[in-house]
Design a protein around this nucleic acid. Structure first.
Length: 431
DNA sequence: TCTGGGGTCCTAGGACCC
DNA sequence: TCTGGGGTCCTAGGACCC
């Protein structure tokens, strides 16, 4: 029986955005650092020093002004160009350790590996320590690795690897003496379990389930009845039964969202249109890079939900295309029409955006016999030219509307942005 | 003054059908 | 006056993830 047991590892970059910034600017080492969300709104990444000062994940910057000033915390705007490139390198190093079907790129800073085929011939802890060293040496990023009999257990192991100094960055729960495992799990709050969010945490606590150990000892079918099938799977996974295989080929996207809060509130329809044209172009870029067509587009506008002095205004409008499209002109045109319907004068808008949904693969789409073939082919040529020019000369050279010009009213604020250390060809710039 | 953005999955409930 | 039961599909909203 034992030989059928699966083994998973979860490799996770410690304080990802902070670590990326530190790699390029070593002055940030050993001092408290936080990285902000878009518009410099909330702290979304914190160095260990910043965490130790009690700065919580997702807290708005204005609420921690005092602690930031008093401790001279280094504050940075987020620089996604850098994080995306570092992430690509991280995942490609890990790809060198396993077969393609054994790697799941879970997020920008997390990767699941199926190590089942290694467990009989390798000391897995040693093997994973090798990965840590290589990632540190090659791209300068610190990582933690958790090993478990299921993905959920690997997640918990990763959490323990981060918290417990004794593990030296690699925690193996699969090979741990069950008594020791139970001891550790009695110390970890149930809210740390993958899939247990705020609501379920509270419900579990009300039932007397407070630690990971409590949850692991619960009865899967009963928990499935009281919660959902996901909870049932989670409990099984904690009991060492793997229910979630490695997903090495993620399903094609089901929706694409492009939206932003504005740097300052805007009221004019023309400004909204300008911002919206940018989000549509961002969305179309992703749509086409995945070789998809869009069947439905939804536009939305919102005022500031935190402003209690005026009623919250939020409106959406949907449009379904007779024939799915990927031409930026069609999509911007329709979006302007939707915006006319949801725009109300006198509102201070804080955010707007679009959803593209009912996405289908371009290659599998058979165009309607009655649709205009010539127009479609002209549109495709136009899109090709538009993309070529943007790639060669930058986005501002050709676009729908002036949205790529600098310093628009609605542009987001990023006052503490680090440099872009990568050149266009992906190499690191040398000063 | 100041509160991110991009996703997925599940469930409940209504409409409709036989 | 009687007013079942089972099935499917769709949608809105909730919960969760990073």
């Amino acid at each position: 029986m034992k030989h059928q047991e699966k083994i998973f590892a979860l490799v996770d970059i410690n304080n990802c955005y902070v670590s990326c910034e530190r790699f390029f600017n070593p002055k940030l080492n050993d001092v408290p650092v936080i990285v902000l969300s878009n518009n410099d709104g909330c702290a979304v990444a914190r160095s260990n020093e910043a965490k130790a000062m009690g700065i919580k994940m997702g807290v708005p910057l204005f609420q921690i002004k005092d602690v930031v000033q008093k401790n001279n915390v280094q504050v940075l705007s987020s620089n996604y160009a850098i994080y995306a490139e570092m992430s690509r390198r991280f995942h490609s190093i890990l790809a060198g350790y396993v077969a393609p079907h054994e790697q799941e790129i879970y997020s920008i800073d997390e990767c699941f590996l199926d190590l089942t085929s290694f467990k009989n011939n390798y000391d897995l802890v040693e093997y994973c320590q090798g990965m840590r060293e290589r990632i540190q040496q090659w791209i300068g990023l610190p990582v933690s690795i958790g090993i478990g009999r299921s993905k959920t257990e690997a997640k918990i192991a990763n959490h323990m690897a981060k918290k417990g100094k004794r593990f030296n960055g690699v925690c193996d729960l699969a090979n741990m003496n069950p008594k020791h495992r139970e001891y550790f799990w009695s110390l970890v709050e149930v809210g740390e379990v993958w899939g247990v969010g705020r609501k379920q945490n509270k419900k579990l606590n009300d039932m007397g389930i407070n630690t990971v150990l409590d949850l692991a000892k619960s009865n899967p079918p009963i928990m499935g009845k009281l919660f959902t099938v996901c909870m049932q799977r989670t409990v099984l996974e904690l009991q060492g039964v793997s229910c979630m295989p490695i997903d090495d080929q993620p399903k094609p996207k089901q929706q694409i969202v492009a939206s932003r809060s504005f740097g300052e509130k805007i009221t004019e329809l023309d400004d909204l249109k300008e911002a919206m044209s940018k989000y549509v172009q961002d969305a179309v870029k992703r749509l086409r890079s995945e070789k998809l067509l869009c069947g439905v587009i939804t536009a939305f506008v919102q005022s500031n939900p935190f402003d209690a002095s005026v009623p919250y205004y939020s409106k959406t409008q949907v449009y379904k295309f007779a024939e799915p499209v990927d031409c930026v002109l069609d999509l911007v045109d329709v979006t302007y029409g939707l915006l006319d319907k949801i725009y109300k004068p006198g509102i201070k808008y804080k955010k707007c955006g679009v959803f593209l949904s009912e996405l289908i693969e371009k290659s599998s789409h058979i165009p309607d016999l009655l649709s205009d073939h010539e127009v479609r082919s002209l549109n495709e040529n136009l899109m090709q030219a538009y993309e070529d020019i943007q790639a060669k000369h930058g986005k501002a050279k050709i676009s729908v509307g002036p949205c790529y010009f600098k310093h628009r009213k609605w542009s987001m604020s990023r006052d503490m942005l680090s440099k872009n250390y990568f050149s266009k060809n992906g190499l690191i710039k040398v000063k």
